[in-house]
């Protein structure tokens, strides 16, 4: 396991380097002064001058890249003048809200999506299957931020049941804080949930159909298990393997979804931060956010791999 860990870290390295190089390339290819790109448009003139000196922006490209890498290694992602705070601090703080939203919505999405897909597979080519199949495609075709706005239109504007934005209220009416957050989270989490639901449903359907053709499913039937047990306990467990793989592969798509959802619902996470940084032309935050998101995906992939070993005893890491 240790050897495997070491190898994984070696594999991670090039991806991070690629993301860093892209950042560096952007700074240097951007029209105008690279120092401004590094500092953001709100930075005072003195800071830009200082930056130019500390990064040696007049030095040759390779030397500049070296300085840049060293700074990154020390966790220095720059300073945001729009927020007057170091970028890393900002990102770490905002990442919490994103994680909360993503984890909760994905928990339900994977659970229900997989169940729906397995149910459709069990009733292959019958009414339930058709309904689930077409319903999920339809859902899949709706832009996530549009779903968000429709949710706001219905539940916040028309019915006035739920708040449409933010994470907490100014006036909590004596509610405990976590309840306040939970109430605020219902709409954005539902939105992200609806966005990924069809992915898991479609995947589970396809892989359960695939597994259902296998011999050990016939064995399970022969033993006398009920159809429900055959599908939900025997086929599904095996069909989960591709779901886990895809969940890992689609982490970056998930972050994309989170970015847009947070924008719609003003949820104070990474995505909302990116949106605000776009309007403020706060380039250090945009670049830091990109690097940070890359790291999140890599870590997520790693966790998914560990889950995979647990689900499939045939996988041996050597």
């Amino acid at each position: 396991m240790l050897r495997y860990l070491a190898r994984r870290i070696l594999q991670i390295f090039p991806v991070v380097l690629l993301a860093v190089m892209m950042n560096f390339l952007l700074i240097n290819l951007a029209p105008g002064d690279p120092a401004v790109v590094m500092a953001g448009e709100h930075a005072p003139v003195e800071y830009i001058a200082e930056l130019r000196k500390s990064y040696g922006l007049d030095a040759p490209v390779l030397e500049r890249l070296g300085t840049y890498l060293v700074k990154l290694m020390h966790g220095d992602l720059g300073y945001s003048f729009a927020y007057r705070r170091p970028v890393l601090e900002l990102l770490l703080e905002r990442a919490q809200a994103t994680m909360l939203l993503v984890l909760i919505s994905q928990f339900f999405s994977i659970l229900l999506g997989t169940w729906l897909g397995a149910y459709a597979a069990r009733h292959h080519n019958r009414i339930a299957d058709k309904l689930i199949s077409y319903g999920t495609i339809l859902l899949y075709c709706m832009p996530i931020f549009w779903i968000g706005m429709m949710l706001i239109m219905i539940f916040a504007v028309k019915l006035q049941w739920l708040p449409s934005s933010g994470m907490t209220s100014f006036m909590s009416f004596g509610r405990p804080r976590w309840i306040d957050i939970a109430i605020h989270m219902i709409l954005p989490a539902t939105c992200l949930f609806l966005h990924t639901l069809p992915i898991y449903a479609k995947l589970a359907r396809a892989s359960v159909l695939e597994v259902a053709r296998e011999d050990f499913i016939t064995t399970a039937r022969a033993i006398g298990f009920s159809e429900r047990v055959v599908y939900m306990r025997h086929a599904l467990r095996n069909a989960l393997l591709p779901t886990v793989t895809v969940a890992g592969l689609s982490l970056s798509a998930l972050l994309t979804g989170a970015l847009l959802v947070e924008t719609v619902f003003a949820w104070p996470g990474l995505g909302r931060l990116m949106f605000e940084a776009v309007s403020a032309r706060d380039y250090p935050v945009l670049m830091g956010g990109f690097l940070f998101a890359t790291l999140l995906v890599i870590i997520g992939n790693f966790i998914v791999d560990v889950i995979y070993t647990y689900l499939d005893p045939r996988v041996i890491y050597s």
Partner: peptide, 18 residues
């Protein structure tokens, strides 16, 4: 590697800068 990099974040960055 390209598969891991979060695309929309990169696109936003590029479009914001250029």
């Amino acid at each position: 590697m390209f598969n891991i990099v979060p695309r929309l974040f990169l696109i936003i960055l590029v479009v914001a800068v250029f």
